[in-house]
């Protein structure tokens, strides 16, 4: 499991921002968004199942990139991205996925996206990525 510096969400922001130091409270510089990435290889389907949970933005998009790259380097196979736990993503995350999709395609593998939430589905539709990445959305 890959974990960014924040574990449990926004409501702990204040507690984490101001950590108690011997001489009072100091401001924590490291406040990027929560992102946890779980991955497992499904032997039957011969594909990676990767589930990012939390938020992806400019501060932690590289983490998603390395999770995708590392999985593929470890074992070549299709990638299924489960997006049901992802509450926010913007163009920086989309960029990572476009890049990974291209590299997968060049190697003869697929990358598909499952169960994105409504806000992310909207971005996929706007950018036309839904046709490429989520055939299930276009069917519905």
């Amino acid at each position: 499991m890959i974990r960014s510096n924040w574990r449990s969400g926004k409501n702990k922001l204040i507690g984490r921002l101001f950590e108690k130091q011997p001489r009072g409270y100091s401001f924590r510089e490291d406040i990027s968004m929560t992102l946890e990435i779980q991955r497992s290889f499904n032997e039957q389907e011969e594909r990676w199942e990767i589930r990012p949970e939390g938020e992806v933005d400019i501060s932690n998009a590289p983490l998603l990139r390395s999770a995708l790259d590392e999985a593929f380097l470890e074992k070549q196979g299709d990638i299924l991205l489960r997006f049901d736990g992802l509450s926010y993503m913007d163009s920086t995350g989309l960029g990572v996925i476009i890049g990974a999709y291209g590299r997968m395609k060049d190697n003869g593998f697929t990358l598909t996206l499952h169960e994105p939430r409504e806000n992310i589905t909207k971005l996929l539709r706007i950018t036309g990525l839904d046709r490429l990445l989520c055939p299930e959305l276009c069917e519905s």
């Binding site: 510089e29 490291d30 406040i31 990027s32 938020e55 933005d57 926010y88």
Partner: peptide, 9 residues
């Protein structure tokens, strides 16, 4: 980059 989330909130 890490402050973009703060602005967003």
């Amino acid at each position: 980059a890490e402050y973009v989330g703060t602005v967003r909130m």
